[in-house]
């Protein structure tokens, strides 16, 4: 049944650090690679070498410019994948029961053999976390690499989502957000992690860490100009041009 569980034993999810993400898209490539070769239908591309390429991805990186009231604009790279919401609207709208939220770890998954490809779950998601595969015609979404995190054939350090494992900036963290002692929960606590679109009432598990406030002129005071007045030839040019 696509009723949501009233309680999940754990709340596995991601914490994404907008302060350290450099926008390299390595997580996008790692995600596409893993999820094309492993669990479920491969993440297809249609017309990959043609004029109108289109493909399914479970993770995409936007970039936003934030212009404060004073000071220079800031560029924020913004990775976005399924937030594994506690009140996931994509699950309850599913007519076939293909979409479900797991009781044991809170991961939202799609049973691809039950999916009729109606697309209603993608309509119900405010975050754009679900994409219909252009070839397989079933709904694809982040599985939190459910086939990695419990996979005992992998070395222990690889038992985390492919995006987290590959991030060169350490901007993605994986863990149990229902456990206040977990590193991810403490990170959220320390950095003031936030929900996306809280007004939609989806109660997302994934949290985002806002960019840190910083004095971007940190080095400027150390770089005081050393030659205020020109000397020698430049001084002569300066006075000659000034008299013209």
């Amino acid at each position: 049944m696509t009723d949501l569980p009233t309680h999940t034993d754990r709340s596995l999810g991601l914490v994404i650090d907008l302060d350290t993400c450099v926008g390299c898209h390595a997580c996008v490539v790692a995600c596409k690679g893993w999820n094309t070769e492993n669990y479920g239908a491969p993440l297809a591309d249609a017309d990959a070498y043609g004029a109108q390429p289109i493909g399914s991805f479970l993770n995409r990186i936007h970039s936003y410019e934030v212009q404060p009231a004073e000071g220079p604009a800031q560029l924020v790279h913004f990775p976005k994948s399924c937030l594994h919401c506690d009140d996931a609207p994509c699950v309850t709208v599913c007519p076939t029961g293909a979409s479900y939220k797991r009781v044991e770890d809170g991961i939202v998954l799609v049973n691809e053999t039950d999916c009729i490809g109606c697309g209603l779950c993608a309509w119900a998601c405010p975050y754009g976390a679900r994409e219909l595969d252009p070839v397989e015609k079933v709904m694809k979404k982040c599985t939190l690499c459910v086939d990695r995190i419990y996979n005992e054939t992998l070395p222990e350090e690889d038992r985390e989502p492919a995006c987290v494992r590959t991030c060169p900036a350490g901007a993605r963290h994986f863990g149990d957000l229902s456990d206040p002692q977990s590193t991810v929960s403490q990170l959220v606590e320390a950095r003031g992690g936030i929900d996306l679109m809280p007004e939609q009432g989806t109660k997302p598990v994934n949290k985002y860490l806002p960019p840190r406030d910083r004095d971007i002129d940190l080095l400027a005071p150390l770089l005081e100009p050393v030659a205020e007045e020109p000397r020698g030839l430049l001084a002569w040019v300066d006075t000659a041009l000034g008299k013209l």
Binding site: Q52, I54, F57, Q67, P68
Partner: peptide, 20 residues
């Protein structure tokens, strides 16, 4: 979630083409 920091503008989409 960046609204408190200033005016947010979409600077660059995740990809050059359309998607689903």
């Amino acid at each position: 979630g960046l609204g408190a920091r200033g005016e947010v503008r979409a600077f660059e989409p995740p990809h050059t083409g359309p998607n689903y």
